[in-house]
Each structure stands twice: as structure tokens, then as C-alpha cells.
Nucleic acid binder design. Structure first.
Length: 384
DNA sequence: GACTCCCGCCATTGG
DNA sequence: CCAATGGCGGGAGTC
């Protein structure tokens, strides 16, 4: 107990004052940003263990959020749980191994799927149905799920729905297939195996957004859109062997506004105005909803509605097509450092943040010069 | 008005 | 029993 009190009404806005509608910026509280900060805070020498409380207070967020981040980081090997409240920092160098393991694991799953399906068709065409029904790829041991029997079926039902596992499965999607770009809907559908229940889907997609955000902040994936359609999707970048923390992806998006890294670490202050509605009401409403919803429209999804999706028949076991993508687009727009610097004007009163800022600026400058060297011209920055 | 996805209630799990 | 964890989905911001 010390430092920053939970309520800290200081928005690092450079404006002198009179910010009447001190805009609540959702972006500045995104999981991705938080993760970026988290990484910057711990991805350095000397760090060995991480305390959740410490992280929470340093980053100025509630514990709950830390769990979110830590879970996905752990599923990629960057962290490991040591004890209650305690994690061990492994670093980015642990990513390749973790990725590889996931890939192998995924390959196995794929095999399994095909064998039980005995329907190995090597269609090269668009329509490439992926597995038939109910069997989300999970690493659970036995599955005795009978649609009719309801009882102590899944003790570890929880684990199956954990953010961590979901993260791994999401990654497997990329690592174990030819797919380079996947939209979250597709991912959700794939990971769900089936159950096109709108509600379930929505929830799953929500989670995927969360995951995608932190994965993005690690530069493992990047947001784009599907080649053909306009649908937003994520592109697998893979691990680019970057010992020092990179921040590009995040900064890229800073172009338009202030989705700037260090902004407001102590962001416990302005929360979006919760609709006046006390907890009780809320709870009740929830219950009612649950009840009314209990009659899950279990329409057996009839149409398979196969997403034309290339689930590369079992990924090449060794080496094969290990996604080795780099940011090869030229779409990265350039903006000038000085401008950003002077414009940004750090209002950090805390040493850590200052430190952090310097760190970022450093990394970014080098990145910037590198890019400008390759791309002499700032490249007509069109709309994103 | 569709997309994103933050927030925090509260069920679970662990000690 | 309480504290640590973390599923989950309402609904507020964004685009």
C-alpha cells in the first residue's frame, strides 16, 4: 500500500485545461495497450519473477485485467506460473519453442480428426469442408460427451474454456494450416467445432478479440482484412526473433490519433459511465436472461455453411511451412519522430514511465530509420 | 448500426 | 472460510 491511490484523475492530456468532456478513451484502456506496457515493464534484464499485485498497481489496473494478459502470455511461453500471485518471466525467447510445440500438438489433432472422420479429401478447390461436427480441437483427454446425458460430464469444462487454451488453439489455427489470414468469426467457428448458437459464438468472438489484441501487441499477429472480402481479420506474423521488445504494430495505429503507448498508465480514473443500475438489478436481469435463454434454440445447424477455408491437410510435420512472415507490406506509413515527440509531451510523473518512454522512443527511432531507409518515400499514406 | 471489446459481477478453485 | 482466479456477457465506445 502506497503510491497511487485508486482514483487518479490525471489524464496526461497535453492540453492546458478545460477539457470539459475529458473524453473517456476506450483505446487507452485496451488489453493490447496494457499488454504492451506490461511487456515493456518486464521484458528486460533482471526481471525474474512477477507479482500480480505489483503488476496491477504499476500498470494501474485492476487485477482482473492482469489475469487476462498473463493467461495468454503464459500460453505462449513468455511466462509460467510459479506460485500463487507469482509468475516467472521467461521472455520472448521462449516463444519459438512454445510455438513449435503447439504446431506439433496441432498436427496431431489434425491427424486424429481425419482418422476419425475417414473422410480425407484433398480438394484443392474452394470448398474445403473442415471436419464434420462437434469436436472443438482441444487437448482434453477423453470426451464422452453424449448430447443426452447431463451430469458430471465435464469437470474440466472450465479449462476448456479458459483464455489460455483458447489462445493456444487460436494460434494452432495459423501454425497448423496454410491459412495466413483468419477472421475472428472463422476462428470462432473453427474452434467451436460446431454449435452455431449465436450466443455462444458471440462470447467466443469476444474472447478472441481479447486474445487477438494481446497477440497483436506482441507482434505475433496483425490486423488486416481478408483478401477478398472486406472483413477484418488477423494475419499471422509469427515470431520474428526479436529479443528487444518491438512496438511497431501498436505505434502504427497511432497515426490517426493517440493510441500511443505510455499514455495514461494510471488509468483507473475515468471509467466509462456505467449506466445507473445497481448490481442487484443487474444480477436479476442476468438471471432472467439466463432462464429465458435456457431453451437454447438447439436447431441442429443443418446447413454446414462451410467456410471455404483451407485447413491445410495436416501441417507438414517438420519444418515444412513454418510461417515465417515478416512485415512485408509497404503499407506502413511513416510519420516523423520529432513531431510525435514534441506532440506527445510525456506527462509522466513517475520514473518508471519516463524510463519506459525513453525505451520506446529508442526502439522506435531505430525502427523508423530502418524503414525509411528501405522506403525512401513516405509512401502515400492513404486511409488505413 | 455493425464492430469492438472494456468492465466488473460472481462462480470456481486453491489454500 | 477467505482469497485468488477467471468465465462471461451487457452494453458503452468506435468506426
Amino acid at each position: 500500500m502506497s503510491d497511487l491511490p485508486p482514483e487518479n484523475p490525471n489524464l496526461p492530456l497535453t492540453s492546458s485545461s478545460s477539457s470539459l468532456h475529458h473524453s473517456y478513451s476506450r483505446k487507452q484502456k485496451s488489453l493490447g495497450l496494457l499488454c504492451t506496457n506490461f511487456l515493456a515493464l518486464y521484458n528486460r534484464h533482471g526481471i525474474e519473477t512477477i507479482g500480480l499485485d505489483d503488476a496491477a498497481s504499476k500498470l494501474g489496473v485492476e487485477r482482473r485485467r492482469i489475469y487476462d494478459i498473463v493467461n495468454v502470455l503464459e500460453s505462449v511461453g513468455v511466462l509460467t506460473k510459479r506460485a500463487k500471485n507469482q509468475y516467472t518471466w521467461k521472455g520472448f525467447s521462449a516463444i519459438p519453442a512454445a510455438l513449435k510445440e503447439l504446431q506439433e500438438e496441432g498436427a496431431k489433432d489434425t491427424f486424429h480428426r481425419f482418422y476419425t472422420n475417414e473422410n480425407v479429401k484433398v480438394s484443392d478447390d474452394e470448398d474445403d469442408e473442415e471436419e464434420s461436427s462437434s469436436q472443438p480441437l482441444s487437448s482434453s483427454q477423453t470426451d464422452t460427451s453424449k448430447p443426452g446425458s447431463l451430469d458430471s460430464s465435464k469437470i474440466d469444462n472450465r479449462r476448456e474454456k479458459s483464455l489460455g487454451l483458447l489462445t493456444q488453439n487460436f494460434i494452432k489455427l495459423f501454425v497448423c494450416s496454410e491459412a495466413r489470414i483468419i477472421s475472428l468469426d472463422e476462428a470462432a467457428k473453427l474452434l467451436l467445432g460446431d454449435a452455431h448458437n449465436t450466443s455462444i459464438m458471440r462470447t467466443k468472438v469476444r474472447r478472441l478479440y481479447d486474445i487477438a489484441n494481446v497477440l497483436s501487441s506482441m507482434n505475433l499477429i496483425e490486423k488486416t482484412h481478408t483478401l477478398d472480402s472486406r472483413k477484418p481479420a488477423f494475419k499471422w506474423l509469427g515470431y520474428n526473433g526479436e529479443p528487444t521488445f518491438t512496438l511497431s504494430s501498436d505505434l502504427m495505429q497511432a497515426e490517426s490519433t493517440k493510441r500511443v503507448f505510455g499514455t495514461d498508465l494510471t488509468n483507473v480514473s475515468v471509467k466509462r459511465s456505467r449506466t445507473h443500475e445497481n448490481a442487484t438489478e443487474r444480477r436479476i436481469k442476468m438471471k432472467q436472461h439466463a432462464i429465458a435463454d435456457s431453451s437454447y434454440n438447439q436447431s441442429s445447424d443443418d446447413a454446414h455453411e462451410s467456410r471455404r477455408y483451407k485447413f491445410g491437410l495436416f501441417a507438414p510435420a517438420a519444418g515444412g511451412t513454418y510461417p515465417a512472415a515478416r512485415l512485408e507490406d509497404n503499407s506502413k506509413r511513416a510519420f516523423d519522430v520529432e513531431n510525435l515527440v514534441s506532440d506527445y509531451r510525456p506527462t509522466y510523473q513517475n520514473q518508471v514511465l519516463k524510463d519506459l518512454f525513453a525505451h520506446y522512443m529508442d526502439a522506435w527511432k531505430s525502427w523508423y530509420s530502418e524503414v525509411t531507409q528501405k522506403n525512401p518515400l513516405p509512401d502515400t499514406s492513404k486511409r488505413h
